[in-house]
Design a protein around this nucleic acid. Structure first.
Length: 287
DNA sequence: ACCCAGGGTGACG
DNA sequence: CGTCACCATGGG
């Protein structure tokens, strides 16, 4: 189990098993971590921090007060990833993923930010998604400074109050009305957090009510921000990977796919992140 | 010029 | 219920 120490410029968490912070920040689950001089800089719940790793030790550094429990939760440090990786290694269909993905952790992100971010992600690529979100934060987020200058992710009202033209200007394209309308639903009082208490299917049906949210985006929001560790997002990379790993390169039926995911168990979503990263690193099935 | 990217919507069967 | 053209944008 990890240990937390407070130091003058932040906190140091030591004794962490199976963590590769660089891989976790860059694997496409979050779009707000940037390489810094030493480690990564990111903004979480309006707080900008620099995170660096040395062996089993994580140094979270920022000038302001740091909420240690929040970061333990964000980096999912209480979960036994060693056990998850053992299970992946024991599955002949999955074990090839490990060398490419070991050390990944699924971050527990803020629901509203995750919702808007993955609406933007539709039919888009990670680099461009990050740019759009950066500009969205600059445009409508509260600007802050500690030893860095940065902007928080905007509040729902702030995004709902942007014009479609402003949203298009930051490069969101045809997704602009989806972003605005979904933000307005949250601003009107919809409580996303409530969905973490519903069953996976119920929570999914709720998320599908948001414009710009289909099955894939819904599963991303559920997995990355609402503790539904059995949500299993399938994008073009996962589609290729699932065919290659489980179906001898043929296209499975929906039922066959559902059966496999169910077979992967209650942490299937975390396994998904390993497979996703493997697929992207490996360039699996690219013509 | 064409294809692709952490896909969704609306129309049509 | 399933299929499919269409959707902005930028990089390869």
């Amino acid at each position: 189990m990890h240990e937390i120490k407070r130091v003058t410029d932040g906190i140091i968490i030591s004794g962490i098993d199976n963590l590769d912070i660089a891989r976790s920040c860059a694997c496409g689950q979050s779009f707000r971590w940037r390489k810094s001089d030493e480690g990564f800089f990111g903004v979480v719940r309006g707080r900008g921090v620099n995170v660096s790793q040395l062996g089993d030790t994580l140094h979270i550094r920022a000038a302001e007060e740091i909420d240690a429990a929040m970061w333990v939760d964000y980096f999912d440090l209480k979960r036994d990833y060693a056990a998850i990786e053992r299970a992946i290694g024991a599955d002949v269909r999955l074990r090839d993923c490990l060398p490419y993905a070991t050390g990944i952790r699924v971050f527990n992100q803020e629901p509203f930010e995750t919702l808007i971010s993955f609406i933007i992600s539709a039919n888009n690529n990670i680099k461009r998604i990050s740019g759009i979100i950066d500009r969205l934060c600059m445009l409508a987020g509260e600007s802050k400074s500690n030893e860095y200058e940065y902007s928080a992710f905007p509040k729902p009202e702030a995004i709902a109050n942007l014009s479609l033209q402003q949203l298009e200007q930051i490069g969101s394209g045809y997704r602009a009305p989806f972003i605005k309308r979904s933000a307005a639903m949250i601003a009107d009082g919809y409580e996303l957090e409530r969905l973490s208490e519903l069953s996976l299917d119920q929570a999914r049906r709720e998320l599908l009510k948001f414009p710009g949210v289909g099955p894939k985006v819904a599963d991303c929001v559920l997995l990355f921000s609402l503790h539904h560790t059995d949500a299993f997002p399938i994008d073009v990379w996962m589609d290729r990977a699932m065919r290659a790993l489980f179906f001898e390169s043929r296209q499975p039926s929906k039922q066959e796919l559902t059966d496999i995911i169910l077979q992967l168990g209650p942490l299937s979503g975390i396994v998904q992140q390993y497979v996703f990263h493997y697929a992207r690193q490996q360039g699996i099935g690219i013509k």
